[in-house]
């Protein structure tokens, strides 16, 4: 920092904060998939295909989540956002 810098605008965007927020989201997502069984991506794809036979949806309108509640119980949660007017 030289003396000239004091006259310049000090309002630089803090990109480290953006980086951290983006990482927290992607890492949480990655960890969700980490524990899923190997067949999971394929099953998710096939579920989307079946829905597409009836309603045109894109991949991001479907969220498939597998939660391990305890040792004996896993819950498969399927969320589909249907487009309007159907």
């Amino acid at each position: 920092m030289s003396i000239l810098d004091y006259f310049r605008s000090n309002k630089k965007p803090n990109t480290a904060v953006t980086a951290k927020e983006r990482l927290q989201i992607i890492v949480a997502h990655q960890r969700g998939e980490r524990d899923a069984p190997d067949y999971f991506p394929k099953m998710k794809q096939e579920i989307i295909e079946v829905i597409r036979k009836y309603v045109q949806i894109s991949e991001d309108q479907v969220s498939v989540q597998l939660d391990q509640n305890d040792d004996k119980l896993s819950v498969l949660e399927l969320n589909v956002t249907l487009p309007d007017g159907k």
């Binding site: 630089k12 803090n14 990109t15 480290a16 904060v17 980086a19 951290k20 990482l23 890492v27």
Partner: peptide, 17 residues
């Protein structure tokens, strides 16, 4: 660069990982 907000800090990376 951490001080000027251009780089993730030790705390940030430790918290994420």
């Amino acid at each position: 660069r951490v001080k000027t907000g251009e780089m993730l800090s030790v705390e940030d990376v430790s918290e994420i990982l």
